[in-house]
């Protein structure tokens, strides 16, 4: 059932990564005390690669993405782009960086200016950043971009306002806008989660084509592992829980042969679109459904109060480090580290 042998080789450090998050943390000060929304995360994105970040709400996915996009400065650690710490860049170079990394939000209705036509939405950044010269050239480029995101024929869309479009069409416009500045990385933060199933797949297929044709890398954030599997199959996936990366590896491995009890629980919990299969799935047992507060993290492994494999004295002692458990796959779990990862059931 699993396709581990056919797993495409993921070149880990063979190429030079385009972006690296090096031990980044983000600490927010709140009335309840400091909250570590992201704690010492290490991630890298190679050119044209898809890196999926999955986890439940509050796991720190969006905070990590905002640091990657240069929207917030990490409390500690470094965000490296093209070999340079982005927070050491001069103003102009930082602007170039921001052009190279574009963010596509969850809700295109909120992220598109409702008083601008699609043409204005697309030509404004082109003209502002001097990507093209003159309104005529900008209009032509806008036309081209709409074709790239499958809004054809473009003349049907250019003069429309966001409210005149469907959710899927609006999200395509948001992607077209992200493409105006020829980005090297697109950060897609739950970009398809508001769309209906059938439309979601066509938007993902379009994004996949952009990756292949334009070589754009993706930091793809989703709570939906099935979507991460579909979009990120050839890339890698990091699973986050309460601010930490708990498992990391090639997407097919994470989906078909997860080792961390949390990843296993997530994957087991997802219903399948197949009545016989979904009713015979065995679930990883959990001790509790309560997600601890980030302000009062449990000692040791933050998952231990919920984990079915909890061992007294082992799991509530030190915080487990992310270590390699199989080639290319790492997990932060004391039990897996001690016993080794059992081989995936064939």
């Amino acid at each position: 059932m699993t396709a581990v042998d056919e797993t495409p080789a993921v070149q880990d450090a063979s190429g030079k990564p385009l972006m690296t998050l090096d031990g980044v943390s983000q600490v927010f000060d709140t009335k309840a005390g400091p909250i570590r929304a992201v704690d010492q995360a290490n991630l890298s994105i190679n050119p044209g690669e898809v890196l999926c970040l999955v986890g439940e709400s509050g796991s720190g996915k969006t905070t990590a993405a905002r640091m990657a996009a240069g929207l917030t400065r990490p409390s500690s650690g470094q965000v490296m782009f093209d070999g340079t710490d982005i927070w050491s860049l001069k103003k102009r170079d930082f602007r170039d960086f921001r052009r190279s990394v574009q963010y596509v939000h969850q809700d295109p209705y909120a992220s598109l200016n409702p008083t601008r036509t699609i043409q204005q939405t697309l030509t404004a950044p082109l003209l502002k950043h001097g990507v093209v010269k003159g309104k005529q050239a900008a209009a032509e480029r806008a036309y081209e971009l709409l074709t790239k995101v499958d809004l054809t024929p473009p003349e049907n869309y250019l003069s429309k306002y966001p409210h005149q479009l469907s959710g899927g069409q609006r999200q395509r416009v948001a992607v077209a806008r992200a493409l105006t500045l020829d980005p090297k990385i697109i950060i897609a933060d739950e970009s398809t989660s508001m769309l209906d199933v059938s439309i979601r797949i066509s938007v993902l297929a379009m994004l996949g084509r952009l990756r292949d044709e334009l070589g754009v890398g993706f930091l793809f954030i989703t709570h939906d592992l099935a979507i991460a599997k579909y979009f990120g199959w050839r890339g890698r996936t990091a699973v986050m829980y309460l601010g930490r990366i708990v498992e990391f590896g090639p997407t097919p491995r994470i989906i078909n042969a997860p080792t961390h009890p949390y990843t296993r629980a997530l994957i087991d919990a997802i219903p399948e679109p197949d009545p016989d299969l979904t009713r015979t799935k065995n679930a990883e047992s959990l001790r509790s459904l309560e997600i601890p507060s980030l302000a009062h993290l449990p000692p040791g492994c933050a998952f231990h109060p919920r984990c079915g494999r909890f061992e007294d004295g082992l799991c509530d002692g030190d915080v487990p480090q992310l270590i390699q458990v199989r080639p290319g796959q790492s997990a932060a779990c004391h039990v897996v580290a001690r016993d080794g990862a059992d081989e995936p059931a064939a």
Partner: peptide, 14 residues
């Protein structure tokens, strides 16, 4: 159009 979680990458259609 529904991606399953178990198994290989399926062919999906929208």
């Amino acid at each position: 159009a529904v991606p399953p979680i178990v198994g290989d990458l399926p062919d999906l259609e929208s």
